[in-house]
Amino acid sequence: MPLKVGRGAEAPPFLVMDVISAANRRAAALPPGAPGILRMEVGQPGTGAPRGAAEAAIRALSAGAPMGYTEAFGRPSLRARIARHYAERYGAAVPEARVAVTVGASGAFPLAFLAAFDPGDAVAMAAPFYPPYANILTALGMRPLLLPCGPETRWQPTVAMLEALDPRPAGLILASPCNPAGTMLPPAEFAAIAAWCERAGIRLVSDEIYHGLTYGTVPETTAAAVSASAIVVNSFSKYFSMTGWRIGWLVLPEDLVRPVECLAQNLFISAPHVAQVAAEAAFDCGEELEANIARYRRARAGLLQALPRAGFDRLSPADGAFYLWADVGHLTNDSVAFCQRMLAEAGIAATPGVDFDRERGHRFLRFSYCGPEADMAEAPRRLAAWLGRPGPEGA
């Protein structure tokens, strides 16, 4: 008799991970001296952890102290430092007791979803969206409710969209800056959505992992400053350039503190001890981190100028994060095949839009610009040559 396979095993793939694998294989197969693969698919900084963070970890390991379990919500000193961050950056009073250190943002989402929602609950989110939102919800028996968004709302949901929902969902995931479009909600619109959620009894989950990676077009807003019932998710992976350290955090409303703590105790025990030590030190590495942002800012500006001349002239505004969401409907109606050809023929890895929008993503792709600056400058030239366009120099 065949053995049962759980419904959680049916979660769809996160396609960008498949693109990463394909790009790795392509790079390994290149002959010596051949032009390398330009990596514009991956959403992780090209820089490593800030020096001060790495040195703090080295000191802790060299001291010989055991790196054992911490409290489920993390080291008290790190939780206090995160709380201080909210006061310094946003002027928001966040008690240390409401901060939970997690195994990256990826570990924070299932804790938040399990504590806030029940199987069968609908949770709304803008489309395009970060795929694991929907995939984690589905694996947990919850229902993603997609709100198709477009350039007219800057790829973000509106109160009018939410008002039109019937029945209303149990929750809303909001991301500002968002992945894949990199757009942000102006503070008044963000606050209006948060207030609507409170009135409607809908739990707001605010994904803020790209905070810090913004370019001055729209101010950052944290849900911790505008809603007492919202859940905030953040991470050291993006602004702090610590993806592989697997360290993130939650800011929780009072009613979910103990439920999330119990879940964390059972599911994860605690985030890695040494990563917590490094993360606390990363807050004091502002100069190095801001230098990283300056690199992204230059790459962003160069691509926004050069990509249209290379044939990619329908781009998202890119207020934050390090992504450009490109409408390539004039070039293809199959973004998966288009990205495969781009990798094979132009040596550029990008992510097909179907990863982020299953209905409309066949005509979109996502470019990431957090790789080496030289690669970001080279990409439009290669794309122009591939598409037979005059390119940046000939425009």
Rank of each mutant, 00 (worst) to 15 (best):
V5Y: 13
G6V: 13
G6C: 12
E10C: 15
D18M: 13
D18A: 15
N24R: 15
R26N: 11
V42G: 12
Q44A: 12
T47V: 14
P50W: 00
A53N: 03
A57E: 12
A65I: 09
P66L: 14
G68D: 06
E71T: 12
E71S: 14
R79C: 09
I82E: 01
A83I: 01
A87Y: 10
Y90M: 07
Y90R: 01
Y90V: 03
T102D: 03
F109Q: 05
P110I: 09
A116M: 06
F117L: 10
D118L: 13
M125A: 11
A127G: 07
Y130W: 13
N135I: 10
N135C: 11
L137N: 02
L140H: 06
L146Q: 12
G150W: 07
P151T: 09
W155A: 07
V159F: 08
I173R: 04
A175D: 05
C178V: 08
P180C: 00
G182Y: 08
T183A: 06
E189S: 15
F190W: 03
T214E: 11
T217P: 00
A225V: 04
V232C: 11
V232D: 03
F240D: 09
W245Y: 15
L250G: 08
D255R: 13
D255V: 03
V260M: 07
E261W: 11
A264S: 13
I269E: 08
A271R: 03
A271N: 10
A282E: 08
A282P: 14
D284C: 04
A291H: 03
A294F: 01
R300Y: 06
R300S: 08
G302A: 11
A306N: 13
F312I: 10
L315V: 04
D327Q: 01
F338Y: 11
C339S: 10
Q340I: 05
G347V: 04
A350L: 07
G353A: 05
L365G: 02
S368D: 11
D375T: 02
A384G: 14
E393A: 15
